[in-house]
Every structure is written in structure tokens, then in C-alpha cells.
Write a protein that binds this DNA or RNA. Sequence first.
DNA 1: GTCTATATTTAGATAGAC
DNA 2: GTCTATCTAAATATAGAC
Lengths: 235, 235
Amino acid sequence: MRGKVVRAKSEDTRKAILDAAEKLFSQAGFHGVSMRAIAVEAAVPQGLLHYHFGNKEGLFDAVLARRVVPLVERRVALLERRLAEARGGRPSIEAIVDAFFRPLMELGREEAGIHYSRLIAMVVNATDPRSRDLTRRYFDTMAKNYIAAIRQALPGLDEADAAWGYYFLMGAGIVSIARSGRIEDLSEGACRADDIDAVLARVVPYCAAGLRGIAGAAEINADITRSSLGRKRHA
Amino acid sequence: MRGKVVRAKSEDTRKAILDAAEKLFSQAGFHGVSMRAIAVEAAVPQGLLHYHFGNKEGLFDAVLARRVVPLVERRVALLERRLAEARGGRPSIEAIVDAFFRPLMELGREEAGIHYSRLIAMVVNATDPRSRDLTRRYFDTMAKNYIAAIRQALPGLDEADAAWGYYFLMGAGIVSIARSGRIEDLSEGACRADDIDAVLARVVPYCAAGLRGIAGAAEINADITRSSLGRKRHA
DNA sequence: GTCTATATTTAGATAGAC
DNA sequence: GTCTATCTAAATATAGAC
């Protein structure tokens, strides 16, 4: 019983450190935050950060790892449900795009989730090896599932175009969860990144139509290729 | 004449420092790079960085400022040309989206431009006050022009929806110029971020269709509102 | 304008008492 | 597991000779 109490205290400490690190890393990135600053924010001695997480990279990884599995599971489960609901026929591309965005945006309903999703936006768009490794490790499987689902909804898309489409989908996701203040500036306050329903109401039609647009462009390109090949044969 | 030679030498030094800083900042961000590392990369003594740019922030700002005016001018000029070409009728949304992306993506044809566009991707999506200030200062006017042009091409979009549309357009731009390696991972090497023509051939149809999609969704929402108001009146 | 040397602060990490 | 004190390296920035 005493062991349990001690364990609980330790877990509280770890949580306080992770919460503080999540908040500060999401604001200034890996190099923009010091272990000292995290310790102060968490109100724990600096030594504990090293005791629990080894070094700064271990802490950063732990911050990311803490929430990524449930997040990815929610998104994959929702995708699978949407695919199952479309049994027999094709799933609608809107249903798939919505499954991609909804659990991600829902993070933003809580303070900690805002920090966490900001951090994801930073990591998945960064170019350094650490970020690229983390992105691959945590998101590759999910991404492949979504690309396959997109192709199921839009059979006209080939593998490459579906990858491009997913890539731009990611782009809309990145700005939507970054909360950079940009949409407030662009709209002079009329639009707000924290209005999750408003974001979903725009980003889903945008990306769904965008994916259809790529499919349409691919067909047009194919037509041009066919007719120019035809012309060549006649020449 | 001697003054000119000295002046030229000084300009070379400044250029070497800016090139080095641009490269390193684009890889690891403001805090991820030391003044020492920049001096080494530029092959100049560290003291010169402070002599020419004051401090680290001054250097970062100078890196951004160096290329931003010509870039924004090219994009605005191309937008205006596209609007002029559509004299009488409406411009096509594709023409406007293409004007937004083409000069931005063309940066990627040169080594230095790749670094610079990566840096832009980082800054415009960051949440810290320095980045937000720089983004506002350099891109707000252009953004307003583009939002207005989007509304000209798609009169069905209201101000707010056009802002959201531009925001997602930005998102596609951010991933496209970040060159995170993500598209290569997603497509197992079949798609490449350095194939500028391939990116343009997908991102323009995607975003153009996306903007039309928001306009369509807005019309549907308006219809729902109208019919539900109608019902209420009858009730 | 350039370059060397160095002042000063802050960083990540560890040692050892409790 | 926790906390204090501290080590060592690295950071930004400056002073002053040339």
C-alpha cells in the first residue's frame, strides 16, 4: 500500500513535468526551451527531469509518445467505422476526410490538447532527422490506411496522386492545429482557430473537393495524353 | 575606387553570413543554430556577425528581409496580370491559385531558395511573437489581395469563407515548400517534393477545387438556413 | 571592416545528501 | 524518489588590436 502511494506521487511528478514540457515545447520548439524553464513551469527540481527522462531528447520523445497512440487509434477506428458504414458501396470522400480531421481537432477542446496538437504541427512539418523519425514512427501506418481509403472513395486516383492528396490534407491539418493566429489576422478577428466546428465545416469540404479536383485533373491529364498519343499515331 | 572595392568586400561578407544563416536557420530554427555555427559555415570570424547585424535577432530578420520583397512583388504582379487577363469576365480560380504557388515554388529551383522557402514555412506556421510579427509585416498586404481575388473568382464566397480558403491554401503551400521528406515517405519514393512541376500540377487543382468546395458548402448551408427559416415561418 | 581574445550568462547534465 | 549544489560545455555578446 505504501508502494502504491509512492508510485502515485512519482506519477504525479512525471505528469507535471510532461505537462510543462508539452506546453513550453509547443510554444518555442525543442531548442527554444531549457530544462530549467521546464522545471520551473512544472514546479519541480531540475534534477527530477533527468531522473525520470534521462535527457532532453528523452523528455521530448516522452511528451510526444504520451498522447500519440490514443490519438492515432481514434483516427483509425473512426476511419474503419466510416468504411464499414459504406458497406457494399464506396465510402464518401467527405466521410474519410472528416475521420482524419475530427479526432485531431477535438484535441483542441482542452488546454493540454492545444499544446499537444501545436507540437504535432511543428514536428510533422520539420526537416530535422529527429522530427522525421518521430513522424515516421508514429504516423506512417495511419497515413497508409488513409491513402488506401482515399483511393477506395476515389478510384480514379492513382497511388501517387492519392499520396499528394494526403500530403495537402496534412497541410490543411497543420495550419488548423498550429493556432498561429494567422486566421485571426487574415479575417480581422471574424474567424477563429479555436472554433473547432467552424474549422471542420470548412476544412472538410475544402479537402474533399480538393481530392476530387486532383482526381479530375488526373483524368484530364490522362485524356490529353491519350488524345496526343492518338494524334502521334496518326501523324 | 578603393572605397568601392572595400564596399564590395563588405557586401561579400554580408552575403556569406546571410547565406550561411539562411541555410542553418532553415534546418533547425532560430534557437537550433548558434552564432558560432553560422560563423563557421560562412567561414568568417564570429565578431563580424555582430558587427554587421547587431545580434542574433537582427541577423534572423535580415535573412528573412533579403528575399521577401522580390518574392511578394512577383506574386502580386502575377496575380494582377491574371486579373487583367480576365478583363470583362471573372478570373478563373485556377489562375489565381497558380499565381499564389508558382513564384513560391520556383524558389525551390535554387539551393538558396530551398533554404529560404523552408524558413518561410517555419515562420508563417510558428506561434511565437517574433514569427507572428514577421508574418504580418511581410505577408498581410499580399494575403488581403489574394483573398479579394479569390472572392472575385468565386463571388459565392463571403469574406470569412474566403479567409478560411486562403488559410488552407497556405497550408498546402507550407507543406509544399517545407520539404520535410514526408511526401517521399508517403509515396515510398514515387513522389518528390523537388519536382516542382509535379507539385504544381497537383496543388493547383487541389486548392482550386477546394475553394470551390467551400463555396459549394456555403451555398448548401445557406439553403438549409433559408429552408429552415421558411419552415419556422410556417410553424 | 576585419579578426582575436575574452567577458558573461546560460545551457544540459551529474553527484551525493536525504 | 526527491532535492540542492555544482561541474563542464556552450551560448551570446563585446573589447580592442590591426
